[in-house]
Simulated assay, not measured.
Amino acid sequence: MVSKERLPFTLGFLGRMVGTIYVSMVLHSYLLSVFFSVLQVLALLYYAVSYFPGGSAGLRFLSSTLTSSVLGCFGS
């Protein structure tokens, strides 16, 4: 994760992680904690799609499986 082409992602993800910890531990802001947590998830999804082989296809399969499982729980 420290290679030249992955360094922007690494720095961005670490910055978002520090931001999450800061707003939750120092500012005690629930909304900002949720915001930074969502940014972390989006960064990880970007990393999975960009750098793992079959990232977008795997993510599409995982999301469709998760969606059908959730809908099955609610009887829709």
Rank of each mutant, 00 (worst) to 15 (best):
L66C: 05
F9A: 02
Y47F: 13
H28Q: 11
R16M: 12
K4G: 00
L27G: 00
S33Q: 02
V18L: 12
M1C: 10
T10Q: 06
G12W: 03
L62V: 10
Y47W: 12
G15W: 02
Y46H: 11
F9T: 04
V70S: 04
S56F: 14
V2D: 07
H28D: 08
L62C: 06
A57P: 00
G58R: 14
L45M: 12
R60A: 12
S37K: 02
M1G: 13
H28L: 13
S50R: 14
R6F: 05
C73P: 00
S56Q: 11
F36R: 04
V18C: 05
R6S: 05
G54Q: 08
F36W: 10
S76N: 06
G15I: 01
L39G: 08
L39W: 02
F74Y: 12
Y46Q: 08
S76H: 11
L71H: 10
L32P: 00
G12F: 09
A43K: 02
S63K: 07
G58L: 07
L32T: 06
A43V: 03
G55S: 02
A43R: 03
M17A: 15
G75R: 13
R6W: 04
G55P: 01
V26D: 03
L31K: 10
S63T: 06
R6A: 07
H28V: 08
V18F: 15
S68F: 12
V38A: 12
S68C: 07
F36P: 00
T10G: 01
R6L: 09
L59P: 00
I21Q: 03
S3H: 07
G54K: 09
A48P: 00
M1D: 04
S50P: 01
T65F: 14
